[in-house]
């Protein structure tokens, strides 16, 4: 039987991405939002790797996914630090409470 084509992989990455977006929009918990971001990044990363295999992108796709992973890690670190600060200031992690920048 033929190996799995790109479409299923892309579909999976789409699900990851969409779930990440939904996660970001629905979660009031700051950490939850962060998780959504991780999902989105993973979706993207998966896309890169998929294309690295099925298109002439080659190794470049993998390199990019590596960068994505690294940057996601960095992002997570900083975001968590922010979340902690947020928590320290608001005594909650509810992002809806942090609306000082409202118009």
């Amino acid at each position: 039987m033929e190996a799995v084509g790109p479409n299923p992989f892309l579909f999976v990455s789409a699900v990851l991405f969409v779930c990440g977006v939904v996660c970001m929009t629905t979660k009031r918990n700051g950490i939850g939002v962060l998780m959504g971001v991780e999902l989105v990044l993973n979706g993207a990363s998966l896309n890169f790797v998929t294309f690295s295999k099925f298109t002439p992108l080659g190794l470049d796709g993998q390199v990019f996914s590596l960068f994505v992973i690294v940057l996601a890690a960095a992002e997570a670190a900083v975001a968590l630090a922010i979340a902690l600060n947020f928590y320290n200031n608001h005594l909650t992690i509810d992002v809806d409470r942090g609306d000082e920048l409202h118009g």
């Binding site: 929009t25 979660k27 939002v33 992002v95 609306d99 920048l101 118009g103």
Partner: peptide, 9 residues
């Protein structure tokens, strides 16, 4: 501009 991050997303 509610300032709510979720809404922006």
């Amino acid at each position: 501009q509610t300032g709510r991050i979720r809404q922006y997303v």
